[in-house]
Design a protein around this nucleic acid. Structure first.
Length: 434
RNA sequence: GGUGGGGUACCGAAGCGGUCAAACGGGGCAGACUGUAAAUCUGCUGGCUCAGCCUUCGGAGGUUCGAAUCCUCCCCCCACCA
């Protein structure tokens, strides 16, 4: 990077680089960003009503953009979401209805507001929906003005397309094949409407992004750039963002703040520093200290805690974080005997739960096996039996010694709750109905 | 359209008339060790009223005392040929 650029601007590329967020960029992108405030966009597919942690990395791209004085644009794919991007997908996507896509776009909009400042006086974040220009697009116009700039030969040469063509079992529909055109068109529209000159995304988007910069050059004679981030994997090379329970969502309804916090706390040592760089806003120095702490006193897991706190705070706010930390302390700190039922209710408000009637626990109560399978902790009675025999089931944090164990009202804390734990960290709360 | 090879549990893959609820590997769950980590080791991994019974091996029939295994038809994949 040559001297003479405003330092605050060129610092952006520097930061993306040390954080490992910069996988690749088109020629001249660094200089372009260093010269003046720019607008950069990322597209989000409204295929679900919530984003999940897999989207977090590119969200952080926009966060860094805004912090360094550029204008971030979040494009919700209300139009393209109706089609689906074939990149990296092995099979044809399920199409969503317009209503579903609309609802999902609303949810995503709300979540992005946790990360980006849409109210800022200068370089406020902007949200756009490509349905605005795709919705009323006439096919003939599109084919004439946009389609003629795309070479089918080139599109066929793309890895993602080739793979799908080679696989006779899945195939590739014309609809999905056209996705790259629509994404390129989005870029062109944002270039025209918002003066947006940069598209960011995951490295799997590289092909779609460069198709967009090409289109802008051909149609408008303008220069546009692409900057992509790596795809996140963990050290075992497995997909990031899944737990035993499935996807980790940003929506508290789908993944509670406690579960969200736990997801980060459980990060492997070897991944933690990398994730701190990716997902937190901690400085390079602070991360260095945490890295050192992991080396010298790994059992304290300072780095995991810092990571979990930083991310949970941003997604769920101070209140959500406080509850998650409190629940974690109560659960992993020791036994429950010191907690009142109210404490338990509070701490566990976040944990998966079910209900049982007082009647069932009366007298002899019910067998532990029935209790586990009816509460959903075990998938069947056989599963419940095996879990107990394997020594992995705890009632109110006390190990259940055998399958003859019966659960009665005497086990309910103040007659209101029972806490089941299966394994080390999978908790479940059962409320006693009056 | 022709010929040949296949479809087995979450995935991959053995089995090819009884000893098959089905080897083995992966994944998943649990236990031990730890630090709610990794690695490693151990157990479990169809359902149930659980030393027994019931339902599973692409689908439907059939042969047999007995079928994942044999036969018939159908559906779907793969390879080569046209």
């Amino acid at each position: 990077m040559s001297p003479g650029y405003p330092s605050a601007m060129s610092a952006l590329i520097e930061e993306l680089r040390w954080r490992g967020l910069l996988q690749d960029a088109t020629e001249g992108a660094a200089e372009h960003l260093a010269e003046a405030p720019r607008s950069a966009y990322i597209g989000f597919d409204p295929t679900a009503r919530s984003l999940h942690v897999g989207s977090l990395l590119v969200i952080m791209d926009l966060v860094h953009m805004q912090r360094h004085g550029h204008t971030p644009i979040a494009l919700v794919g209300g139009g393209t979401g109706l089609i689906g991007d074939p990149s990296g997908k092995e099979t044809e996507r399920q199409l969503l209805t317009k209503e579903q896509v609309g609802e999902n776009a609303e949810g995503i909009r709300a979540q992005l507001a946790h990360f980006l400042d849409f109210e800022a006086k200068s370089n406020a974040a902007v949200m756009r929906n490509n349905l605005d220009w795709l919705g009323g697009l006439a096919l003939v116009d599109f084919l004439r003005d946009i389609g003629k700039h795309f070479s089918v030969n080139q599109m066929m040469a793309r890895e993602s397309v080739k793979r799908r063509l080679a696989d006779e079992t899945s195939g590739l529909s014309y609809t999905e094949f056209s996705y790259a055109l629509l994404q390129s068109y989005d870029f062109l529209e944002l270039y025209r409407r918002e003066g947006c000159t940069i598209q960011m995304g995951g490295s799997d988007q590289w092909g779609n992004i460069t198709a967009g910069t090409d289109l802008i050059r051909r149609v408008e004679g303008g220069r546009a750039f692409g900057v992509v981030s790596p795809l996140v994997t963990n050290s075992a090379g497995k997909k990031f963002g899944k737990s035993e329970a499935g996807n980790i969502w940003l929506d508290a309804e789908l993944t509670s703040p406690f579960q969200f916090y736990q997801f980060w706390i459980n990060t492997e040592d070897t991944d933690t520093v990398r994730y701190l760089k990716y997902f937190s806003l901690l400085s390079q120095d602070d991360i260095g200290l945490l890295d050192a702490a992991t080396q010298t006193e790994p059992h304290l897991r300072s780095a995991q805690k810092a990571l979990a706190e930083d991310v949970t705070r941003r997604v769920h706010g101070e209140t959500g974080l406080a509850k998650a930390v409190q629940a974690t302390g109560a659960l992993f700190g020791g036994d429950l005997s010191g907690l009142s039922a109210d404490d338990v209710a509070d701490v566990f408000s976040d944990v998966p739960s079910s209900e049982v009637t007082r009647e069932k626990l009366g007298g002899e109560g019910m067998s532990i096996v029935d209790f586990l399978s009816e509460s959903g902790v075990a998938s069947s009675k056989g599963d419940a039996r095996r879990a107990v025999e394997g020594g992995g089931v705890y009632l109110n944090n006390v190990r259940v010694e055998g399958i003859e164990r019966r659960v009665t009202m005497a086990d309910a804390l103040e007659g209101r709750f029972l806490v089941i734990r299966k394994g080390k960290r999978s908790y479940h709360l059962v409320a006693v109905l009056p």
